[in-house]
Amino acid sequence: MSTPELFVAAARQCLSIRRKSLSVPQCLDVAAQLSAVDLALKPTLLYDANSAGADQVHRYLRLCQSSQLVSECLVTLDLNGNSLVLNPVEVRSNLERMVHGGGPVVIDVCRSLDEPAVTEPFRAGLKTIAQDLIFLLEGFDAGKEVDQGIYVAERSDDWNLSAVFGLLLGYPATYWFDQTDSFENCLAMTPLTVTTASATWQADDATVRKCCLYSFSIPAVLQKETQSHLEDWKLTLEERFQQQNTLKELTVCQSAVTLPSVCL
């Protein structure tokens, strides 16, 4: 079987829901994302192709690893019912950067604000979460215990998942809001700049697919305050892209949107 056929077979064997399998394009999209994580072009894949559970995503990853489609170092994370595949070396590097004062810009989008604002006080909470995740990753960054996924239990109930996802996914900026007050935010009708990074994934001579590696937004009003972080993120992505040959034709573009509501 060819590489694309192996990826499709693994997805259909492990990720089907009530006898309904992913389509071939969906299978290949997941495969391209997984390959990007394996190549450290992105630290994490947040699985959302269908409602397959964490156990299913873990079996899919293990089957891809046993077929030598991706390396053994990747691990799965069940975060409050959300399934992720991590490159633990890259994720841990991002988490440690956050703990030591670096990491993404934290943007306060609480509903009580007139407009979003860069915040420092909320960074302390995100640092604590980063430390908890580093502890969970102990031993996995060396490729050990890959037969067991990582499960975040009750400790994540109070975590702001929007901010945590931004951190795990390697975004240069992440949204935070006080969920003890409300899960609503102040981004409605706020001009946003959406950054999208895409590449071409060529699994074999006959299979070429466009793959979206990143897509995130930053409020336009905070463009100056976040510009240096965005430029550093782009430079790092370009440098890593040049160190591999599986994905080609990297494109980073921006667009402006204003939405009546934004769900985080």
Rank of each mutant, 00 (worst) to 15 (best):
N87G: 08
L22Y: 04
K210A: 14
T226Y: 00
L79W: 13
G81N: 03
N50Y: 07
C212M: 08
L187I: 07
E249T: 09
F183K: 06
E5L: 11
C64V: 12
L136D: 04
I134L: 13
T119Q: 15
E120D: 12
E154Y: 15
G101F: 13
L126W: 02
H100W: 06
T195K: 00
S261I: 12
R59K: 14
E154W: 06
Y47E: 11
E231L: 06
P25E: 10
T174K: 07
L259H: 06
R18K: 03
W176N: 12
V85E: 03
D181N: 01
P25M: 03
P43L: 07
F135W: 01
V105F: 03
Q223C: 11
E96Y: 02
L45W: 08
I129F: 02
Q254H: 00
S182G: 09
R12V: 04
V99Y: 11
V70E: 11
L95T: 05
D141S: 05
A206F: 03
N185K: 02
G101V: 14
C186Q: 14
F183M: 09
V30F: 05
Q227Y: 03
K20I: 07
W159A: 09
V208F: 05
L230E: 00
V194S: 03
S217R: 00
A124R: 04
E238T: 07
S215C: 10
T196R: 15
Y60A: 15
L46S: 06
L79P: 02
V75K: 11
R97F: 11
L222A: 09
A256I: 04
T3S: 07
Q65G: 12
Y60T: 15
Q26A: 14
I134A: 04
T76W: 06
R19K: 14
G139S: 00
F241L: 11
D132I: 07
A197E: 12
G166H: 05
E238R: 06
A199S: 01
E115T: 08
L235K: 05
F7H: 05
L167C: 10
I107Y: 00
K20G: 02
T128S: 06
V75T: 15
F140K: 02
H229A: 14
T251H: 12
P260Q: 09
R62D: 13
N87S: 15
K20Q: 10
S66P: 15
G125C: 00
L237Q: 10
T196F: 08
